[in-house]
Design a protein around this nucleic acid. Structure first.
Lengths: 154, 154
DNA sequence: ACATATCACTTGTACATTGCAAGTAATCTT
DNA sequence: AAGATTACTTGCAATGTACAAGTGATATGT
């Protein structure tokens, strides 16, 4: 999966993207970094979807190999690594916004979305209805650069 | 995979989207419908990536169950089914455009993209550099509505 | 009309990936 | 120094994917 460079199934740009991040977990890890400001292995493990430890380690390694994320040692705790998005990874933000917007338009999602905070639900609806996604994307980029949680009350 | 409604891993809209179309093949089938005007099982089978017959049948069934595509009998040949995108499926076009744009920006893709026609490569670069994706999305929608091939020389 | 080809699948079986439980080495805390 | 925490790895069972070969319905060619 998300295999070694050099043996692509095809050179279609859609396929190229899917081979980079189109598995069950990669975009959820990126989501955690983008919207929740998560940065360490332990934080990723805590997500609602419950990723297994070996799968998480594998995905982090492959995202790093593809240049979507990078890691560096934690300055204060040498057991930890700090993962962050490269520019290539930050450029996936528009994609995440489109996925959120797509889901946000559907009644199927709306009826399942009981547990979000009001601010989260408000933002999802905003993503789904805005004319100008550029503004949203910039806000998210700023929030990531600040290392903070996107849904923080302003 | 792309499992039965009701047992979502979480109610996050990113996860919701990924559970609907986030497997290895669904978006490639949708790509074939959107950019290449493909409509039948046999046409999907012919794609460069080489999907297996049982996997294709399974994905078509699950996309249909999720309301992303629908099928109707071919009017002239009763062996065939005609698959088409529902409105919910058409709303995935912006997502495809973002994937193409992401890949199109990368030198890794550019160096692998030998086999495309000049028109295809021109469009990928356009997706990657445009300020106004809305215009592109509308053009694609029109091309799908016309049942035609998006990269046709104008 | 009959034989052959085509189409949209299904079935069987090998192979690969995923997921769970448990373990490990390094570092931190007390 | 002892125990806790962190980021992983390992082994194995369950699940999913891929290939090859079929099947039944419809179409085509003679």
């Amino acid at each position: 999966m998300t295999d070694e460079r050099g043996k692509l199934r095809s050179d279609c740009p859609v396929n190229f993207g899917l081979e980079s991040f189109g598995d069950k977990w990669s975009l959820l890890i990126i989501r955690d970094m983008v919207f929740w400001g998560k940065k360490t292995y332990g934080e990723f493990l805590g997500s609602d979807e419950g990723i297994a430890t070996n799968i998480l380690a594998g995905r982090l390694a492959s995202l790093e190999k593809e240049g979507i994320i990078s890691k560096r040692p934690h300055p204060a705790d040498r057991r930890k690594e700090i993962y962050s998005l490269t520019e290539k990874g930050l450029e996936l933000i528009p994609l995440l916004v489109e996925i959120v917007a797509w889901s946000g338009k559907l009644v199927e999602w709306q009826s399942a979305a009981g547990t979000g905070t009001p601010e989260q639900i408000r933002q999802v609806k905003r993503f789904a209805t805005t004319k100008n996604k550029g503004k949203i994307i910039q806000e998210i980029r700023d929030s990531v650069a600040a290392g903070s949680y996107f849904f923080a009350p302003r």
